[in-house]
Simulated scan of single mutants.
Amino acid sequence: MKKKSELESQISSTLIQFEKEYMGRGPVDIKTYLFDDIVFIRLKGVLTKAETQLASGGSKDNRDLIKRVRIELLEKGRPLLEAIIENILNRKVVSLHTDISTRTGERLIIFTLNEPLNDLV
């Protein structure tokens, strides 16, 4: 049985690969945390240079546009993301929540699972 730190590392490295292949580039940094029935993933440096320029223009519409596009892209990739988590943790994903900061370039992804990870971590 894998240790908690090994599972967290495996999720992080698999998510980096997903970001590179599906979104076009990977994050600068990523960290995964497992708690009870929650998977919390923090990705840093996910905005492209173009998105950073668009966001720095000061317009709320531009920031909202970046957020909407990023959320829509993640929703399209949701089946792949859920499969990653389910395969690594042997748990079903109940829900996925995400947000991205256009100021810091940080994205949070949170999965809730159908049962706790007590026996895994």
Rank of each mutant, 00 (worst) to 15 (best):
G57R: 00
S56M: 13
I100T: 07
G105M: 04
R25S: 14
T52M: 11
K4S: 07
E75K: 13
V69C: 05
R103P: 00
L81F: 07
I41D: 09
N90T: 09
E106M: 11
I110F: 00
D119K: 13
T112F: 04
L65D: 05
D37L: 06
A83Q: 13
R70N: 12
L89R: 02
L113R: 08
R42K: 14
L80C: 06
P27S: 14
E75G: 07
E115I: 01
I71Q: 08
S59C: 02
D119Y: 06
D119R: 10
A50S: 13
K67S: 11
I38A: 08
G105D: 01
L47Y: 02
F111M: 04
L96V: 15
I110W: 01
T32G: 05
I66S: 02
E19H: 12
N118C: 04
L47K: 04
E8Q: 15
R78W: 00
V69N: 04
D29V: 12
T32H: 05
S56P: 00
R91G: 04
E21L: 12
G58A: 10
N87I: 06
V46P: 00
V94N: 05
M23C: 05
E6C: 07
V39M: 08
E115A: 13
L54H: 00
S13V: 11
R63N: 08
K44N: 09
M23A: 12
R63D: 03
L81V: 03
D29S: 15
R68I: 06
N118P: 00
S5I: 08
A83H: 05
H97W: 05
E21M: 07
V46H: 04
N90W: 06
I11V: 15
F40N: 11
L117R: 05
E51S: 09
R103N: 04
K76Y: 08
R91L: 06
N114L: 01
S12W: 11
T112G: 04
L73M: 11
S101E: 02
L65H: 09
G77V: 10
I85D: 00
E8Y: 09
I110Y: 00
P27N: 14
F18V: 02
K92A: 10
L34H: 08
E86T: 03
D119N: 12
E8G: 02
I84T: 04
I100D: 02
L81C: 02
K76Q: 10
P27E: 13
I30A: 11
T32S: 15
Q17L: 14
